[in-house]
Design a protein around this nucleic acid. Structure first.
Lengths: 217, 217
DNA sequence: CGAGGAATTGATTTCCATCAATGACGGTGG
DNA sequence: CCACCGTCATTGATGGAAATCAATTCCTCG
């Protein structure tokens, strides 16, 4: 891996460390192995898979507090690559250490881990459904709603304005469209008074309509 | 749930039971809860999500030996529905009992469970990639290769002929296409001498080409 | 046989990708 | 301060992949 900038900890420990990465830097590559597990502390990142011909699929976005993957608790090989969307700060912990702490009190740890894995899988399967069944605008609405919920869990949201540091390119790669088409759909959302994404902020003016489009009911 | 036909066990036990379901019967509905976990013993089934308007996405196929979901070990609520593709035989076990057996020797159970969860998630994320990036024929080739591997793990395959009880409708619902278009693609696979699916058997004549199309490298 | 679902085939439409050009910024250096 | 550049977003024109509509034909199974 690339410990791009290791930050000196105030009380150094041998089982936990931190590092920084600037926007756009790839921090891990698919198939890489690591004795550590990672948590995103600040900033946004995304997980993705890339095909031989360069096509890239974004699997999900990482927000502060997210484990890169719940499965990384047990699996030392990355099944995806990770790239910083904004400047980020990451915390790494020795897997062995974390595992031993888990086995020490499994009663509290096990349900949390199970829930976390379960949530990941559920999100994946909902995304499969969105990609398999939904139109371009439904997919984008779904992505917005999914991220809005996660953002709202971490930030105080006022006036329905969400911090949203995604380029149209990222939206396109997440929901299987071209950036040009994403631009058109966002244009229609604007003129229909549904939502406006610009300058890194998503402002939702017609939540009902957005939900009607993207709820995957 | 519907214990359609409960089979008398030769030595009855209170923590394990079996039942049968005919082809096309839905055996569980999304959001249902169950104190049991289930393994498919014989036949094929599939997991799916359904939207309010009736559109349906197949999330994956279940083959003999498959847990309906590894997450069901911890999660009592179904996040998907299950329907029999052929006539099936299912075994159900009390979750509490299974969990206590797991905690009795976690050293052997834990890695197996983790691997199983991990495999499910990896499969989901590869499917997201296929749906987001790939053309119709690439998606179908991917589905074929994925299932061929799983079938070959359970059956002796001769002459590259795989038992394959899917209707074109099911293929369509799994890879996000219409049955009509699936028919066309399968037609081209036939005339190009790549593979022939009919009468419930998939016969592969040009594995290399199928892999070139569907390997998701 | 005959009936009904499944598959195939053709004609047409729709949605989205692709190609191409333009404009809006923000940074950089002269 | 302004010309230059690269990135991003927007817009228009066109083409292509897959959906949709509509008949048949083919199986399968009573």
């Amino acid at each position: 891996m690339g410990d791009y900038e290791t930050v000196a900890s105030s009380q150094p420990s041998n089982w936990q460390h931190h590092f920084l990465a600037p926007a756009s830097r790839q921090v891990f590559a698919s198939n890489e192995t690591s004795p550590d597990i990672y948590v995103l502390c600040t900033g946004w990142a995304f997980r993705f898979l890339q095909l031989a011909d360069g096509r890239r699929q974004i699997l999900g976005f990482l927000l502060p507090g997210d484990l890169f993957s719940a499965h990384s608790l047990f699996e030392e090989r990355f099944q995806f690559s990770v790239k910083a969307l904004t400047a980020i700060q990451v915390s790494g912990m020795k897997r062995a250490e974390v595992q031993s702490r888990i086995t020490q009190n499994p009663a509290t740890a096990a349900p949390a881990i199970a829930k976390s894995c379960s949530a990941e899988t559920e999100a994946s399967e909902k995304m499969i459904t969105a990609l398999g069944l939904c139109s371009a605008e439904e997919r984008i609405a779904y992505l917005f709603l999914h991220l809005m919920r996660r953002i709202a869990d971490r930030n105080v949201i006022r006036d329905d304005r969400y911090p949203f540091p995604l380029r149209q390119q990222h939206i396109a790669e997440a929901v299987g469209l071209t950036p040009v088409h994403v631009s058109r759909i966002l244009g229609t959302f604007r003129e229909r008074g549904i939502a406006d994404l610009s300058h890194g902020v998503l402002e939702v003016s017609d939540l009902k309509e957005l939900q009607r489009l993207g709820s995957l009911t």
